[in-house]
Design a binder for these strands. Structure first.
Length: 665
DNA sequence: GTTAGGG
DNA sequence: CCCTAAC
């Protein structure tokens, strides 16, 4: 089989790829303009190698790679089914691959999904090592590939799950060492049967994968210490250009050169635009830091190692020596980072804590606090660790009465409360819930008919009185009523976490399988069916409690990787469009949990199989790992969402991002 | 309406 | 998951 892959590069560093079944040769490569856009035609041979139509083009391809520092992602799986990659007109680089990836993989998938996935995981792993060498940013994820499978093969989930778990030990073991060494053989054996390229040449290609990265990296030695482009003469700029892109330029325009070089640098290493400072040599060091940090978090789009590897095979020969250097360097980096990470994360933590949004104490908080204090003032001090701690423990006296607390009712006493470092005046209030009783009171009532009688009455009276005399004893009644109800619910309802009903799990899974199609309109309403789920133990579970399925989790993680944590609504809209339940808040919560899990799970090697949470979803280690990586990356580059996109609108990254997300809307 | 955090 | 404050 032969597939022609058309690769187009422009100065933004975006590549488009479309695989079309065609015979290769006759296709010439139209060159558009001197610089900006170049079309390359490449032939994919039966064994999966990418071969330029002409020798001439071979050079060009090499140039391209070395040139604009593009992370190019070709789909490896073309080898398997001919048309698989066709109809994918847009395959962006690095970012936002997954959508298309899914289709790709999907189309190209074989009948042995599980094997495939397993192998992909392995591949991914070594990819990470590869990418370490380049320090390139990771935007799509390891498991994305897996995910592609899953989403279409929901029934396969259990199997996948198993497999993923079986991966865990592997993950644990290989951490520090052998990024580059083991890859060649592992990779080869790891490649998918159908898609793999039987020829041994591939092995060579493997090692050259890093060559791509290498080649796409500018030779910084030229630039060392001299990034102040502004001061350079044209000649110097030319030299810099050459050092950066590996080719000569005749352009005389200083501005253009500067811009171009800057861009090249920005694109090439994964110096984010925000951290890219041309003046002073900060850029270099920053870049280094970046890659350092990125280690372990790296993985780029692991889509198509195979293809990429093969691709670079040709161009790699020239750079083999460089490659070695880089590899060793990467190993070094990796080693260091292990130690560095700790302090870094600590710093981060501190920063985060500092940056945390300051919240005014909630009414609830005030109420609770007030309750305790009133209790104390009434004679008995019941030191609830939490509350009293807040009040007294701190030598700074977080809380100290400012006014006089002699009379409680109706009197508002102020106390000075420093929360989150900001001195806030918090009023004393009597425990009165001003708003109408919570909805769930009602809900609960209808749920516990037995308790309802009294409770309802209480609430009713309280409610009516409440409206007339807001700040009064009656308010307390309301609260009491509520708490009564809450206490009553225990015997009846089963804690969702603890009793994981098998039956409900199954039904959920099923529902989820069908969900993505179009449950949309009825989705929310039909959910009402699920609202009450009979548990195996005869209890009833209420609320919109849906267990998170693995595929959901993966979707979530993937979404975060693409849009960043915090853009929950986006993720919700795009990745979870079909899941009518799962609000953005849910996503956020789940992410929080995942984060916690991932952080907690990794350090202790205790759980060999991480079967810890036997209840529901084990969350395979790879995913947790991924979560962690993402988290790290996110916190590393916390800002630059708004600033970057505004300032560097012309930069490839962001553009891709923007257009993409808007395109999907 | 969305997001962050506490519960 | 819910709630609520902040944005």
């Amino acid at each position: 089989m032969e597939t022609v892959v058309e690769v187009e590069g422009n100065e933004e560093g975006k590549y488009k790829e479309s695989g079309v079944e065609k015979s290769s040769s006759s296709l010439s490569s139209p060159k558009l303009g001197a610089d900006p856009v170049v079309y390359k035609l490449v032939r994919v041979e039966g064994d999966g190698r990418l071969v330029p139509a002409t020798d001439d083009e071979l050079m060009e391809v090499g140039n391209l790679l070395a040139d604009d520092k593009i992370e190019m992602h070709l789909v490896a799986e073309t080898g398997q089914s001919g048309g698989s990659s066709s109809g994918m007109p847009q395959l962006e680089s690095s970012e936002g691959l997954s959508q298309s990836e899914n289709t790709e993989v999907d189309a190209g998938k074989s009948n042995t999904h599980v094997e495939y996935i397993e192998e992909m995981l392995q591949k991914v792993k070594q990819d990470e090592s590869h990418l370490l060498a380049c320090g390139s940013p990771d935007h799509s994820s390891a498991y994305v590939i897996v995910e592609g499978q899953c989403s279409d093969q929901n029934d396969k989930m259990p199997g996948i799950d198993e497999k993923l778990q079986s991966e865990i030990p592997l993950q644990g073991n290989d951490t520090p060492s052998s990024p580059s060494l083991s890859k060649s053989h592992i990779n080869h054996s790891g490649s998918v049967g159908e898609c793999s390229n039987p020829s041994n040449e591939l092995i060579e290609g493997q090692s050259s994968a890093s060559a791509v990265c290498t080649s796409s990296k500018p030779d910084f030695s030229r630039l060392k210490g001299e990034i102040c482009l502004d001061n350079l003469s044209i000649k110097e700029l030319h030299e810099t250009f050459r050092a950066t892109f590996g080719r000569e330029t005749t352009v005389k325009d200083k501005q253009w050169l500067k811009r171009r070089i800057a861009m090249g640098l920005t694109n090439s290493c994964d110096v984010l635009a925000s951290s890219f400072i041309i003046k002073d040599n900060k850029l270099l060091s920053k870049g280094k830091e970046e890659s350092c940090n990125n280690d372990g978090t790296t993985s780029m789009s692991n889509t198509a190692v195979g293809a990429v590897n093969v691709e670079c095979k040709d161009s790699s020969t020239n750079h083999s020596s460089q490659m070695e250097e880089h590899q060793t360097a990467s190993v070094e980096r990796q080693r260091n980072s292990g130690t560095d990470k700790d302090c870094k994360s600590e710093d981060l933590h501190a920063d985060q804590v500092a940056a945390k949004r300051v919240r005014k104490p909630t009414r609830r908080y005030i109420e609770e606090l007030s309750e305790v204090e009133s209790k104390e003032s009434s004679g008995k001090s019941i030191p609830s660790a939490k509350n009293s701690g807040l009040r007294q423990m701190s030598p700074k006296s977080n809380t100290r009465p400012v006014g006089i607390a002699s009379s409680n009712r109706g009197t508002v006493v102020m106390r000075l409360d420093s929360l989150g470092g900001s001195g806030v005046q918090v009023p004393y209030v009597s425990r009165v819930r001003r708003s109408r009783p919570r909805k769930n009171v009602m809900a609960l009532m209808e749920f516990h008919p037995k308790g309802m009688g009294m409770t309802a009455a209480l609430v009713k009276t309280a409610f009516s009185v409440h409206s007339s005399q807001p700040n009064n004893e009656s308010g307390n009644i309301v609260l009491k009523a509520r708490s009564t109800v809450e206490k009553m619910q225990h015997p009846f309802t089963v804690e969702p976490e603890k009793a994981k009903p098998f039956s409900s799990m199954v039904s959920i899974e099923q529902g989820q399988n069908m969900e993505p199609k179009h449950v949309d309109p009825s989705g929310d309403t039909s959910d009402d069916n699920v609202v009450t789920v009979p548990t195996g133990k005869g209890g009833v579970r209420r609320k919109h409690h849906r267990a998170w399925t693995l595929s959901e989790v993966m979707k979530l993680v993937e979404g975060v990787s693409r849009y960043g944590a915090g853009r929950w609504s986006e993720i919700k809209r795009l990745a979870f469009a079909s899941y009518s339940y799962r609000t953005s808040v849910d996503l956020k919560d789940k992410w929080r949990n995942l984060l916690k899990a991932s952080l907690a799970q990794t350090p202790p090697d205790k759980r060999i199989n991480s079967r810890k949470h036997a209840s529901g979803m084990p969350i395979p280690a790879p995913i947790l790992l991924r979560v962690r990586e993402l988290a790290e990356r996110q916190s590393q580059v916390p800002s630059n969402l708004s600033s970057t996109s505004k300032l560097a609108g012309s930069t490839g990254r962001n553009n891709v991002h923007e257009t993409r997300s808007s395109g999907y809307l």
